[in-house]
Amino acid sequence: CHSECLGNCSQPDDPTKCVACRNFYLDGRCVETCPPPYYHFQDWRCVNFSFCQDLHHKCKNSRRQGCHQYVIHNNKCIPECPSGYTMNSSNLLCTPCLGPCPKVCHLLEGEKTIDSVTSAQELRGCTVINGSLIINIRGGNNLAAELEANLGLIEEISGYLKIRRSYALVSLSFFRKLRLIRGETLEIGNYSFYALDNQNLRQLWDWSKHNLTITQGKLFFHYNPKLCLSEIHKMEEVSGTKGRQERNDIALKTNGDQASCENELLKFSYIRTSFDKILLRWEPYWPPDFRDLLGFMLFYKEAPYQNVTEFDGQDACGSNSWTVVDIDPPLRSNDPKSQNHPGWLMRGLKPWTQYAIFVKTLVTFSDERRTYGAKSDIIYVQTDATNPSVPLDPISVSNSSSQIILKWKPPSDPNGNITHYLVFWERQAEDSELFELDYCLKGLKLPSRTWSPPFESEDSQKHNQSEYEDSAGECCSCPKTDSQILKELEESSFRKTFEDYLHNVVFVPRKT
């Protein structure tokens, strides 16, 4: 048989008469490798580009789960590009990614509803959504962080984005990388972005840091009482949809009607710091009717980097990364020049730590249904340095008659930039024990000054392991946590139920 035959053949030295091919099969003959313009397919066939392209389009058009959109890589027609490569849609070739590779997620039936953290986790790592997304989240724990972890990498949506009755959302900033909504599939009414009845939605994105392009379709905003109209108009300008909307697409009466839409800028007039305090004062603000001013709200939190936005980490279910302080308005003076500047002394802060701070007014709604208010920009203030805590785990070892090696770990709280350490030492008198000992005694162990690591005695271990207080009263049991108490109650309830079950099964009433 021919060298490319495997198993047997019907005619000697003829690659077209093989029972099976050793390498690849091409047009009725066995070959060692697939010549151009053919590609290896499933490690035994040679196919042309049209064959591989037909497989790709067949799966793409069917949208069946589990099928493969075949691509070409290293002269092979394979189910998908290997790690580190992405497909070129024009020629199906796998090309190296520039940075992290995109991950295209194809949605069944063309859309997916995100109504819980669990459903959001199914899209973790996706960068391109081939379909439409509907966000409908009523509640949950730590929602802002969970949504950002699972949806934060999405850069492109081919269909539309719909935010509907998501009472738990305060902001859409968890879509931190969303840059493009194509609108290839539109919501009824030709809408590519749809926001309806979101009672706590206050911000779409921080438009000073976020760009969003909507290729096709219109915007729809109705019944978002805490979303200011200025935020919607800003989205029109940034996304390129200005002029597409009709009169009733953006409701003037049901958007922002319960919001404090600040239209003035508060400026800080005085800032002073110490290692654990920050004193702030800002310019006074009074609405047209000074009785509408209820006070100020001061927001602050630790910020290692200057990239904080107002609604980071917030949701309507209680999660809030900001510390909020309510401040009463100052006494009002008739003389504008003698107006008191409101302020606040922030206490209990960490030394040498940068804080993000902003302040906003708290006002009631005027009778004319106009909203007044003022808010400052987010500023960054760093507390002063102070003395560091003591170095940890000092170790001293003498390696000769004239040297001592000293080692330690950095302090747990540096409280500033540590530039150097101060080492103090003092000579001590020799131990009298060394002169009084009889060095001729056998088995004498000389006193040693070398360091030995501390260890816990058996008594201390027994005390720590004991669940009861000892007789001397030195140790006591740790208080039980809520989960331990709940577990004990469940076990007790189970024992009672099981005992009742045994009584009912074992003891049967005697027939009379």
Score class of each variant (00 low, 15 high):
Ala385Glu: 09
Ser119Arg: 04
Ser116His: 08
Ser260Lys: 05
Leu227Trp: 00
Thr273Ala: 07
Thr215Met: 08
Asp276Val: 01
Gln245His: 04
Leu133Gln: 00
Lys301Ile: 12
Thr113Ser: 13
Arg369Leu: 12
Val238Ile: 13
Gln306His: 09
Ile114Asp: 00
Asn224Leu: 05
Arg247Gln: 08
Pro351Trp: 02
Lys301Thr: 07
Ala144Trp: 02
Pro342Leu: 09
Ser173Leu: 09
Ser338Asn: 07
Thr309Leu: 15
Arg244Gln: 10
Gly110Thr: 06
Gly217Lys: 03
Asp206Gln: 05
Leu392Tyr: 14
Pro351Lys: 03
Ile181Val: 11
Thr213Ile: 13
Phe193Glu: 00
Ser333Glu: 14
Leu204Arg: 00
Ser132Ala: 07
Lys112His: 14
Ile271Ala: 03
Trp322His: 04
Gly318Val: 06
Asp115Tyr: 02
Asn141Thr: 09
Lys277Leu: 08
Ser239Phe: 03
Leu252Gln: 11
Asp257Tyr: 08
Cys261Glu: 05
Lys267Trp: 07
Leu280Thr: 12
Asn130Thr: 11
Thr386Leu: 12
Gly313Ser: 07
Ala144Asn: 03
Lys407Pro: 00
Gly131Lys: 01
Ala145Met: 11
Glu155Ile: 14
Thr273Ile: 08
Arg182Ser: 09
Phe268Asn: 00
Ser376Pro: 02
Asn334Met: 07
Leu266Asn: 01
Trp344Glu: 07
Gly313Ile: 13
Asn263Phe: 02
Thr254Ile: 15
Gly159Glu: 01
Ser401Thr: 09
Leu147Trp: 01
Glu302Ser: 10
Thr309Trp: 10
Ala303Asp: 12
Leu392Ala: 09
Val104Lys: 08
Ser166Gly: 12
Leu151His: 01
Pro304Lys: 14
Met235Pro: 00
Lys337Leu: 09
Ile379Phe: 04
Lys234Val: 13
Gly318Leu: 14
His341Thr: 14
Leu279Lys: 15
Val397Lys: 15
Leu107Thr: 11
Lys103Ile: 14
Cys228Arg: 04
Asn130Ala: 11
Gly217Thr: 00
Ile135Ala: 02
Asp393Glu: 07
Leu133Pro: 00
Leu265Thr: 07
Lys226Phe: 07
Tyr191Arg: 08
Phe268Leu: 03
Thr118Leu: 04
Glu302Asp: 09
Arg244Ile: 07
Leu212Thr: 10
Glu237Gln: 12
Glu283Pro: 04
Arg369Trp: 12
Phe311His: 12
Leu133Thr: 01
Asn211Pro: 08
Glu262Ser: 09
Val324Ser: 08
Val324Gln: 04
Trp282Gln: 00
Leu161Pro: 01
Leu161Gln: 00
Glu231Lys: 03
Glu148Lys: 09
Ser158Leu: 15
Arg179Ser: 07
Lys409Trp: 13
Ile135Thr: 02
Asn248Gly: 08
Arg369Asp: 03
Leu108Val: 15
Asp335Ile: 12
Asn200Ala: 05
Lys162Cys: 06
Thr323Leu: 12
Asn248Glu: 11
Gln403Phe: 05
Asn263Gly: 15
Val128Gly: 12
Gln354Met: 00
Arg347Ser: 07
Glu231Cys: 14
Trp286Cys: 14
Gly183Ser: 03
Leu392Ser: 14
Trp205Gln: 01
Gln245Asn: 11
Leu293Pro: 06
Leu362Cys: 02
Ser338Lys: 11
Lys337Gly: 08
Ala149Asp: 11
Trp286Thr: 09
Tyr194Glu: 14
Asp328His: 04
Leu345Ser: 13
Lys337Trp: 06
Trp282Arg: 00
Arg347Leu: 07
Asn211Ala: 13
Val359Arg: 00
Gly139Arg: 11
Val381Ser: 03
Arg272Phe: 15
Ile232Gly: 01
Thr361Lys: 02
Ser158Thr: 09
Gly189Ala: 11
Tyr285Trp: 08
Asp249Phe: 09
Leu229Ala: 11
Lys234Thr: 14
Pro388Met: 04
Asp326Gly: 06
Pro391Met: 05
Phe358Trp: 08
Leu172Val: 13
Glu187Lys: 14
Gly125Ala: 13
Ser338Trp: 05
Ser319Ile: 14
Asp197Ile: 01
Leu280Phe: 01
Phe221Val: 11
Pro391Asn: 02
Asn150Trp: 12
Asp335Cys: 05
Lys209Ile: 15
Lys112Gly: 09
Leu186Glu: 07
Leu178Arg: 00
Tyr191Trp: 06
Leu108Pro: 13
Asn340Leu: 10
Trp205Thr: 01
His341Ile: 10
Glu187Cys: 13
Pro287Ile: 08
Ser192His: 01
Tyr223Leu: 14
Pro288Phe: 13
Asp315Gly: 09
Lys267Gly: 06
Asp393Ser: 13
Asn255Thr: 09
